[in-house]
Write a protein that binds this DNA or RNA. Structure first.
Lengths: 288, 288
DNA sequence: TTGCTCCTCACGTCACGTGAGGTGGC
DNA sequence: TTGCTCCTCACGTCACGTGAGGTGGC
């Protein structure tokens, strides 16, 4: 028979926890002094305590352990197997997440070592909701022509929407359909968000596209603030980040004009706030 | 300017968390309506929010992030590097722990598949404190002679301690110096705990050994209850577990007689409670 | 009498989710 | 007027550590 302190040393479990196990009903002392409240443990409890510690070391919760040890001291095999299997799945997932985090941390550190300062862009993984959009699509011959195309595409889009009696909402979303970064023949699509109801009514197809931009499970995103000419750098940062994290593009790059229309009265906004979203997915194992 | 709900969608952060960040001073809304308490956020806040989300995704605490983003919005490089380095170390450790846990869980599952029922022994990793002991050591020719040797070694040990005026405490600890399991020529040492003060006074060396059993950082331990003849099975279980976890024995196996002396009046205890402790360490990488 | 152990009660941890109960804007 | 959004306050999570304040046994 041991007092709680001795039992604590025997089992290498803190006194606090022994009291806690008592309270949870996980491990009741063999005897409790009615007057002083002192807990007295027997050697048989030690085997049970060891079970608890062992299962806990595998990462089972005390509640799960209580379920297992409950009434009879014999472990119900099937439940144990079930719990261990669940635990294995959870552990595999946690391992994967941590490994990804570690890779990100190391990427950041490398980046700091190389450039001497942290990247000005913060890249975040997010999911994208589906949105109803109206759009026009065309190929711009060179990268320097993109601004011009953008302006005029949006302009005619707005005109046609006006004729059709559809109210453009915000933001504008320019999509770049070329998967990689390129400087000529950019397949671009200028889109605006419209109310979802517009999809259900039919519209002349030759005037503009009207459809739902698909949801994206994971996209890399960053916020850029500055002139349109400076967009090249954040685009490259985003694509580089994707590659570095073992991912691969999974859809057109989206350029959201969060601070309103890119062009107003024929003038481009001087310092627009732009969100770049690059849909991406993990490379499958064994994929090139 | 966005209301909290819109901003929440933009940044993919729950409304609850935006309020929380406000409260922590991590991200104050650009404007708060004095009368209604409504929070209004601007686009500039979005960049900061993205920073927060990105750093949080690396596993930094909000407090750390607050320290980084504090006054100036420019990230102090050195502090960032420091935190990331710490984080990397922590992540590596967590990864290792999880991997070990996963290995244990899988070992348990395999064991259940093979034998159809969970092992009757719960093996726990613990550390061992140093203890002062008095002991006698001898080689038993065969495993079946161990009981006999044990009895007589303890008997003469107690006699000599009595002559020397040293009080034996408990428990008895029998040490097996052969590293592997073997059935002949067992190098065994029968020891009893004595008060630490006894070490400081000198004793005739030829009567018995008097020394401090060293501390052990990690030892595998299990509780066995049953006759001494049944000890073989738990010993093998313990050694098997050690091997399975990528560890290697690191000292003599200890057999603690927790329920009192092994022999009393020439009779062995019928169902003693015994703790087996096997010091072990992880195999170094590249070690055979 | 002095330490030592034991007792109960309760707060803090961390980044959230989820209510209750109530109020402004279309 | 009816939903919708927003507000504050507060509890719960999980396995602990760490006190405060007090009492028994040698």
């Amino acid at each position: 028979v041991f007092k709680i302190g001795d039992f604590s040393k025997l089992g290498q479990v803190s006194v606090r926890m022994l009291r806690h196990y008592d309270q949870l009903g996980l491990l009741k002392p063999g005897q409790v002094d009615r007057w002083t409240g002192y807990r007295y443990y027997t050697l048989e409890q030690l085997a049970r305590l060891n079970r608890i510690v062992a299962l806990n070391g595998l990462g089972l919760t005390l509640q799960q352990i209580a379920d297992l040890l409950d009434q009879n001291d014999a472990l119900p095999v099937d439940r144990l197997r079930g719990m261990l299997t669940m635990r294995r799945v959870a552990l595999e997932q946690e391992l994967q997440e941590k490994a990804l985090q570690l890779a990100s941390v190391e990427a950041r550190l490398r980046q700091i070592e190389l450039e001497g300062k942290p990247s000005p862009y913060e890249i975040v993984v997010k999911s994208l909701e589906p949105v109803a959009v109206a759009s026009l699509r065309q190929v711009a011959p060179t990268i320097s022509a993109v601004g011009y195309y953008c302006e005029h595409l949006y302009q005619s889009l707005y005109e046609r929407l006006d004729e059709a009696g559809i109210t453009p909402l915000s933001p504008e979303i320019t999509l770049y359909h070329s998967q990689e970064y390129r400087e000529i023949d950019l397949d671009m699509e200028t889109a605006v968000v419209v109310e979802p109801g517009a999809l259900r009514r039919g519209w002349p197809e030759d005037q503009f596209n009207l459809y739902e931009l698909p949801a994206v499970e994971t996209a890399a995103s960053l916020i850029y603030e500055g002139p349109f000419e400076g967009l090249e750098q954040p685009v490259l940062a985003l694509l580089g980040w994707i590659a570095e994290c073992g991912r691969v593009p999974a859809g057109p790059l989206r350029e959201l004009h969060l601070s309103g229309r890119a062009h107003e009265n024929g003038q481009p906004q001087a310092n627009p706030v732009i969100e770049l979203q690059a849909p991406a997915r993990m490379v499958e194992e064994g994929e090139a």
